[in-house]
Design a protein around this nucleic acid. Structure first.
Lengths: 352, 352
DNA sequence: AGCCTGTTTGTTAGCGCTACCAATCTGGCA
DNA sequence: TGCCAGATTGGTAGCGCTAACAAACAGGCT
């Protein structure tokens, strides 16, 4: 029977076309594109050349069908800063579409609402779950997932848990580095706006700040430390209080960009120019940081990369889970970096 | 030969399991889950029941392999407001993962950078492209795609083009509705911050505003119309100028939320309480609108829905393209809505 | 009843890829 | 030279699903 000319109108290049073009079997081509060893270097090169020439790219549907490792992964998030979510999604998305994983997205209200969302994911046949902060730090959520025997990976986890795989930066070091930078700029009285109390990262970032201050022999004015909730409004309010006191800090370090933006707004309202009269710095380097004015000096967390990596870790873990390989938690620590923009300045130009 | 117990450890429910459970052929089950007609109601019900009972959910990889309509679609965006992008992505993502489409994301700097990005997509084997604003309005980008014979769909297109499929809201009506609402609140002198000149939507929104003003018999003070660029900073600057004049508007209508947020910041800096002394409203209802304080009154565009719909339209178009069906542009217009939050108030409480 | 049309169901084959095993080829060593 | 371990390649089957066709069944007509 004459082979159907493909039910699609097009002329899609398959692995067979490449094989024929090179003069080897499809299997060999498969090995090459999957980077397996035991292929002669010469053959590999020829195949590669043909892949290039024919502009072949593997059909992911067919691959995941064949390998049976197509996975459905769930992404659970709860009211993170939207800018954070956006970056996060980009990373998750691009990685999961590359690896042919199906994605299921659910949001919930804090750790309490997680149970229902996770049940739903389980029912939908999810093979694993990715947790965005602050869920990733919730022992409660972790417990639920462990009871379900559902593989999961936490992103931006601050609470080190030897039984949980995660991708993070070193929040302690990062906060310390930013603090040292502020000190270097001449600031002595530095205010701090803490993050949401249910996020462990909040605590760690404060600790990093406090440690750096102490090491520099500087005292932290208790009136210059405020509780925030990672929201713009909470940063605004915290700064409002802090800046209405008799003695004002010359710099404010907010635990995320949204709060820093709120603090800038508050400073403007009180007639304090940023950075001339007040330095304000944030954390995360989300889009918020570069969309307000002045643009924020902040700690960059490679959120998108971290999210992508978390997908890979999760898929790996799911594979292991299926094959019965004993679970082994992985902790990947990414590098942070300091991004200096216009919201910070040398104390020289400020007056307390 | 004993059938392998599935190469995966698990016990995944397949269409065969359902078929066996009901006592029909897999094909019938397939028909039911795809909502085809010509299945007896009774049979359909039984199948549905089993699908529920076994918690079956189809393997998308297998489906797209079989139907051959697995498509690779590209998403091209260029510096939109990040909040917009985030919502946009959510819609695209959830729809494309549901329909098993592969996604390729590229960004570019304005319409000029689009050529390279599109070439790259073409090389990567994309079957179609989704354009986010303001690219969707670029005749230049449209031309390139048409020359490539690449199907594409524009989202939030303001320029009506009978040859291009798109999903939009009626920007003219939306801007008019918000304007009327402001007038209803007693505002007579309303300032307007225009969007980026390269986005056609900017023009349309202004036209809608102007038309509503004229219809109400109100004059637009030319000094109260400013050019913006959809960025926070541009909104801030525009408001700064507008509010430093002798006669100030009692309300400012910004063409997007980022600029509205900038305007609020500027008002605060000048000591004008929002909304007591000045009403500020935005457009889009992105996350920015509810993350600043006071939260913004704005025009809601169902971005996520629109994005999802655009994926469906594109897949449809790709299918048609493959089967040689002549191209027919589709224009889907979604409903907008007015969201009243804390940044707008009755003129009663304001004084000009 | 016998024929025909339209509806409902089943059968077969194959989408593009890779796991698994069999076949072939290399080179080293006795 | 002959034999064997290891490296390299190929063949076969099947992942879960659905297009296309074939078969079985209903009901309306002469």
């Amino acid at each position: 029977m004459a082979r159907k000319v493909g039910r699609r109108g097009g002329n899609i290049v398959t692995i067979h076309d490449v094989a024929r073009h090179v003069g080897v079997s499809p299997m060999t081509v498969s090995r090459v594109i999957n980077g397996e060893k035991n292929v002669r270097e010469e053959t590999r090169a020829k195949v590669m050349a043909s892949v290039e020439a024919l502009n072949y790219s593997p059909n992911l549907a067919a691959r995941s069908l064949a390998t049976q490792d197509s996975a459905r992964i769930g992404l659970l998030y709860s009211n993170p800063s939207v800018a954070f979510l956006s970056e996060f999604l980009l990373g998750i998305l691009s990685e999961s579409s590359q690896s042919g994983a199906q994605l299921l997205i659910e949001s919930c209200e804090g750790p309490e609402g997680a149970t229902a969302a996770l049940e739903k994911m389980k029912a939908a046949g999810c093979d694993g779950v990715i947790l965005s902060p602050p869920l990733s730090d919730s022992t409660r959520v972790a417990k639920i997932l462990q009871d379900m025997k559902m593989p999961f990976v936490g992103v931006a986890m601050a609470r080190p848990d030897p039984n949980v795989s995660c991708v993070t930066i070193d929040d302690f070091k990062a906060a310390g580095a930013m603090t040292r930078r502020l000190i270097e700029l001449g600031h002595r009285d530095i205010g701090f706006i803490k993050g949401h109390p249910n996020a462990y990262a909040s605590q760690i970032r404060y600790d990093g700040f406090a440690a750096a201050m102490e090491k520099a022999g500087l005292k932290i004015d208790p009136g210059h430390v405020a509780q925030g909730y990672f929201t713009y409004r909470s940063g605004f309010d915290a700064a409002e209080r802090m800046l209405s006191q008799k003695v004002r800090p010359t710099a404010i370090f907010a635990s995320n960009d949204d709060m820093a933006a709120g603090a800038v707004a508050s400073a403007h309202r009180l007639g304090l120019e940023v950075p001339e009269k007040l330095t304000v710095v944030g954390f995360d380097d989300t889009a918020m940081a570069s969309s307000v004015w002045p643009e924020l000096t902040t700690v960059r967390q490679p959120i998108s990369d971290m999210a992508g990596l978390s997908v890979r870790l999760l898929l790996d873990q799911i594979k292991g889970h299926r094959s019965g390989r004993p679970f082994e938690a992985v902790r990947e620590v990414r590098d942070f970096s300091l991004i200096e923009r216009q919201s910070s300045a040398d104390i020289g130009s400020a007056s307390s």
